[in-house]
């Protein structure tokens, strides 16, 4: 069943479809929240995300755009929890053309990236999660974060440099 059909059945109020939607997306939502906030309150925050999703579902006009819509809601709940971190001014971005995304070297190792997430600022952390770990396209990442695609590219580039620097620092420390 496609996401669009599932969402339409949910909007109709079919209970089995709602349960299926939660089953299908529970793990990605929980993983996203856990990666952004850590494990301590992840389950409560994930529940908060689902309550917001259920509240918003009857008004979802484009069921085919469900995935970015879901992550936008999840992000909003996470931003509420990380208000202080998001309030800090962003480090000036580098030119987007220098920040063409690549899937090579260090980001090929998803476990390595996932392990380093905690050391990154929230904005860099979220684009790394959405783009590299949740496999969302750049356009969807930009929509979810509410920024232009170029900004997502800059943040990705910065995030990769930070991860690379952390790996190198660890290597030198050994």
């Amino acid at each position: 069943m496609t996401d669009e059909l599932l969402v339409i059945r949910c909007r109709l109020g079919e209970r089995d479809a709602l349960a299926r939607l939660v089953r299908q997306w529970h793990e990605p939502v929980l993983v996203y929240v856990r990666r952004m906030l850590g494990p301590a309150h992840a389950e409560d925050v994930a529940q908060e995300v689902w309550l917001a999703v259920l509240r918003g579902l009857p008004r979802l006009r484009q069921p085919e755009r469900f995935t970015p819509w879901l992550y936008t809601i999840a992000r909003r709940v996470v931003v509420n929890r990380l208000r202080e971190e998001y309030a800090r001014p962003e480090v000036p971005g580098e030119a987007a053309e220098r920040a063409v995304p690549d899937h090579g070297d260090l980001v090929a190792d998803r476990d390595e990236v996932a392990r380093r997430l905690g050391g990154l600022p929230a904005r860099e952390r979220e684009v790394l999660i959405l783009f590299h770990l949740e496999d969302l396209p750049l356009e969807a990442c930009a929509e979810i974060c509410g920024v232009p695609v170029g900004t997502v590219k800059s943040r990705l580039s910065r995030a990769r440099r930070m991860v690379r620097a952390a790996i190198e620092a660890e290597g030198e420390g050994r």
């Binding site: 109020g13 209970r15 349960a19 939660v22 309550l51």
Partner: peptide, 20 residues
């Protein structure tokens, strides 16, 4: 927490009787 546990937490909004 697995999906069934989350569904149990969401039982109120998911119940058509509660909505009506």
């Amino acid at each position: 927490m697995n999906a069934d546990e989350m569904l149990a937490r969401l039982s109120r909004p998911l119940s058509p009787w509660r909505r009506v």
